[in-house]
Design a protein around this nucleic acid. Structure first.
Lengths: 197, 197
DNA sequence: GTCTATAATAAGATAGAC
DNA sequence: GTCTATCTTATTATAGAC
């Protein structure tokens, strides 16, 4: 029997995760110490370790929040509406990155960490697999509705466009994280000019 | 007066840097300890610290090697030849990433580190600024020679294409680092289909 | 310049009281 | 569940001999 409600535990976990996100954003996954996270959360070591087994588990929870949040949003996009064009899909997906939990600087850190940690790499695979499915189904629907392709042709066309569309999103993330003067609007305008629309 | 030749010192530095690259590729910037780098180099702590002030200086040397190597190569590309198309430029640039020092997994780590460390971010800015110049001059030349644009139009067109081209390269890097089954050939084929060529 | 041995510190995690 | 105090280990960097 749990001593406190499940809601309470979950709220505490979210609270700690949120503090960890702020800490990692400032100091990086490696540069942030447990003491930093503890201080940022306003709690104590004991409280933190009561909810997470250790730093690694906190990092995974943070990564899950950070990379997953936009995909869920995109899935709901254009429900019922006519199929959006590839450039419309990206124009919906990408600007949300700045507002959301999925801040580009944190995404870059997750990617870097995934190069070294198996568990984080697996997490990335899952999320990117979801993203590819969502993109592909939008592209396929648009190719059929607006370009009059038959199902087989549309599917193949979407599969050819898919890596580029994913890549353009990844490029947007890198550039908005790295370049101080990155012009998101100009990037999206170029997308509309050079991608099928 | 130096006790040994400058060539000797430089060779030792390169040797240490190469060992550090292998170590960081396996364990990550943060996960690799000085002891790891020392072991990988076959030298001793004293020898390493005789050539680098500390781990941070080694990281910067590694980052310089890793992110700079492809830009120099690209600059020499197509000297004298007729202007390559945007998709030809990328088709030359990107496959070299796998062979070169600029391994995608290390690039992702450098990007992540740059989110946290000012010096590495500055280094990235310099290299990306170079890359943008090289890309832009190729695109502009091609637009004039093959599309018959006048200078002003070609320059503006190249500037609009530039962020996407950079982004497609960054996407290639992310995907080849993250996806075990990434198909580089298919990515390049899609580039040729969807980009000006 | 390079080696071995070690000093100094920082960090993750736990123990026991409340 | 949460707090304070602390244990233990790992890590960077240096000292001094050769």
């Amino acid at each position: 029997m749990p001593k406190v409600t499940a809601e309470y535990r979950e709220a505490r976990r979210d609270e700690i995760t949120a503090a960890a996100i702020r800490t990692f954003a400032n100091k990086g996954f490696a540069g942030a110490s447990m003491a930093d996270i503890i201080a940022e959360s306003g709690l104590s070591a004991g409280a933190i370790y009561g909810h997470f087994a250790g730093k690694h588990e906190i990092m995974m929870a943070v990564a899950r929040e950070v990379i997953g949040s936009r995909v869920d949003d995109l899935r709901e996009f254009a429900e019922g509406r006519p199929a959006p064009s590839p450039s419309e899909v990206l124009s919906h997906m990408l600007p949300g990155l700045s507002n959301d939990l999925a801040q580009p600087p944190l995404l870059l850190q997750v990617w870097g960490q995934a190069m070294v940690e198996e568990g984080m790499r697996r997490l990335l695979w899952e999320v990117f697999a979801d993203l590819r499915h969502v993109y592909a189904s939008y592209f396929e629907a648009w190719a059929r509705e607006h370009e009059g392709m038959d199902e087989t042709t549309a599917r193949a066309w979407a599969q050819r466009l898919l890596p580029l569309a994913i890549g353009l999103g990844q490029g947007f993330i890198v550039q908005s994280a790295v370049f101080e003067d990155f012009d998101a609007e100009a990037y999206l305008a170029s997308l509309r000019e050079f991608l099928p629309h």
